[in-house]
């Protein structure tokens, strides 16, 4: 489903004429199978967010290749990756990344709007998806009127609405209290179980990493440990 081959990422830091190289990822290779929950762990600065951003197409790799559904996405340009994301990848962000001027309904509807789904079909899909995440009664609420857990559920609903085969989650519980964290993690597991959605989760939290059936540990941009669930 996701195949990462010899991925390297280098950033140039400092002033223009006095730059220094910082290699964030060093020859990273791994595979995520369909239906997996893969957890990528590591301390701050280990390169795990960079890895997710590369797989999500938010930046171009300095070297190596990324295959998603057998397509070499590392060669895509920005427009091609946008279209690809809209069809194949859902995102869950640590800070939810909801558009504050839109209601929960409108935020969840947004991917369908971008896909060009007719308005008549959108209504039913959005209401069903909001019901699935337990927010049917909150559709007209703005993000500022929702709790952190509810906002993350809206974010999950927005990722789910396009029925993606893959969801990339960047610290999905990082902004939540422990009780809500358990709810969200249980929900992720449920989605994986019921719909076969593949998850790639970035976390520094061991408890979150435990829900994965595969785990990769990054240290200084290198995979130092790769293990299957106990």
């Amino acid at each position: 489903m996701i195949e990462v081959k010899g991925l390297n990422q280098t950033f140039m830091l400092g002033k223009k004429h006095n730059q220094t190289k910082l290699q964030v990822l060093k020859d990273v290779s791994f595979t995520v199978e369909k239906g997996d929950i893969m957890a990528i762990t590591g301390r701050s600065g280990s390169g795990k967010s960079t890895l997710l951003n590369l797989i999500g197409g938010f930046m171009k790799p300095s070297g190596g290749q990324i295959f998603i559904n057998n397509q070499n996405v590392s060669e895509f340009n920005e427009g091609e990756f946008s279209d690809f994301r809209l069809q194949h990848i859902g995102f869950i962000f640590q800070n939810f990344q909801l558009i504050t001027s839109m209601t929960a309904y409108e935020n969840v509807e947004l991917p369908l709007v971008l896909k060009g789904v007719p308005e008549t079909q959108r209504n039913e899909l959005v209401i069903n998806t909001l019901a699935k995440v337990g927010l049917a009664d909150y559709q007209n609420h703005y993000p500022s009127e929702l709790s952190g857990g509810q906002q993350q559920r809206v974010s999950i609903a927005r990722a789910l609405i396009i029925e993606p085969p893959i969801i990339l989650a960047d610290e999905p519980t990082g902004s939540l209290d422990s009780e809500t964290e358990q709810d969200v993690l249980a929900f992720i597991q449920q989605l994986n179980r019921d719909y076969g959605i593949t998850f790639l989760i970035i976390t520094h939290d061991e408890e979150v990493a435990q829900i994965g059936n595969k785990q990769i540990h990054l240290h200084d941009g290198k995979i130092v440990k790769e293990e299957l669930a106990r």
């Binding site: 427009g79 946008s82 279209d83 994301r85 069809q87 991917p111």
Partner: peptide, 9 residues
């Protein structure tokens, strides 16, 4: 956010 979700430039 729109671009992250998949809005074409």
């Amino acid at each position: 956010i729109m671009k992250a979700i998949g809005a074409h430039p």
